[in-house]
Nucleic acid binder design. Structure first.
Lengths: 236, 236
DNA sequence: CATTCACGTTGACATGGGTCAATGCGGCGG
DNA sequence: CCGCCGCATTGACCCATGTCAACGTGAATG
């Protein structure tokens, strides 16, 4: 994986040539506004396994993920963890409730994110309502995903959860036909996302492999071998 | 319960004298904008047990609940249901993903809601960004609640779920000291909200009553008898 | 090349909460 | 006032998934 990105924390950013602009919040902006956005943007890299933000912390920044994968999660005091989402390039991280982050975010792979100071972004939104519009629409997407996840966590069986997870991820990534899907997170992360244990995730994947629904070329990739059957197994 | 509300579907609405204005999206508006908002608002009543909106339906309207309680939920094809929230006066119902509703909403009690045509509201937002701002902040709240619920569904025990539910509801309602909390939904609704069965909810409430944490004067009210203990039992 | 270590898989067993069934109870219609 | 009906409660039993433990495997390290 060669790294073209050379900016580090606080460096200038070139929004006009950003690969994810069409899908991120920046996509809505005309060139002038884009320039202003670039002026308040910084780039931030985080190594796999390190934290980007922490729940409860003062929410100073909002990020758009540009490279890699991020997991967002909440913890109970005794350490039980619920991963509430895996973020991919184009996703927005750090929407806050009040002025504190409502979740922690940790890099699954090495990541690069575009950082905006919350205050600057709010100020820019005043002049460019289409930016706020875009944010609202993003929030709507997140809400839809959260609702779907609640249905999964509250009412689906282990098998259905794993099937839904694989299909959901495959739908967000754009994969070539027959190309194996990367699964950069480990089994523990999947378990904490699906409200299961590592063992149950592992067993379920094995069952699906034996049933010919998926192939597992290695621990960090899956191929969906029988889409129809996996859909049927997903419960919806 | 005597009904002062006399408007029905599509009737004129008097936003200036609305009791929930301070907490709803209308709260942000200056008198002029409020007049415009009132002009596009209609009132809608729904009887307990009837539907307000249906998942997948074209999302023509957005509602602010003004009286009563509403449950929002998603269904699996085989009928399993996950209630993703109970709405109380001031809450916004009908945020959509694309242009379809992402959940169904059914009245728990008789309700009154303030209806806005989506299109009109969007148009009004163009002139009054503070309205969109308010919407975004609401969406942030919803997202925070959804995250908390995912943690509950994925990682908490039955006991913790019920305790969290009672505390969460008590926190949103403003109750007088020692006043019993109304619980207008039935046990099945609570179960479908918490990812449990009716029997488990019932048993858990009984246990909590026997442990002196709560009192159950009747099926549709609870009193929190030992707040500290209930908090301890909630897992966070 | 040997060792270690983190992660994943598999097996045996335990258990929280689900399922099924009986009973209780309060409101409503006749 | 009685009987019915929908909801809630309670009990007995069961099973999907969790827990605990052993073992495999591949990548990193010396």
């Amino acid at each position: 994986m060669d790294r073209q990105q050379t900016h580090c924390c606080g460096a200038r950013v070139d929004c006009a040539n950003c690969g994810i602009r069409p899908i991120a919040i920046c996509g809505a902006l005309a060139p002038i506004a884009l320039g202003k956005l670039a002026a308040i943007a910084g780039s931030r890299r985080v190594d796999a396994g390190a934290q980007l933000i922490q729940e409860g912390e003062h929410a100073q920044d909002i990020f758009t993920l540009t490279e890699g994968m991020l997991k967002i999660y909440k913890l109970l005091p005794d350490g039980r963890r619920q991963i509430t989402g895996f973020m991919i390039p184009g996703d927005l991280v750090g929407l806050a409730y009040g002025d504190s982050y409502i979740y922690s975010a940790e890099a699954v792979t090495d990541i690069v994110a575009c950082r905006f100071r919350r205050g600057s972004l709010l100020a820019l939104m005043a002049d460019h309502p289409e930016l706020e519009h875009r944010l609202l629409s993003r929030a709507g997407n997140e809400l839809a995903a959260a609702q779907a996840q609640m249905l999964l966590l509250g009412r689906k069986t282990a098998r259905e959860r794993v099937a839904s997870f694989l299909l959901g991820l495959a739908g967000r990534l754009d994969l070539g036909q027959g190309e194996p899907m990367p699964l950069p997170m480990n089994r523990g992360d999947i378990a904490d996302f699906l409200g299961l244990t590592i063992e149950t995730v592992s067993r379920t994947l094995t069952l699906m492999r034996k049933a010919g629904q998926i192939a597992l070329p290695d621990k960090h990739s899956v191929t969906i071998a029988d889409l129809a059957s996996l859909r049927a197994a997903s419960g919806d």
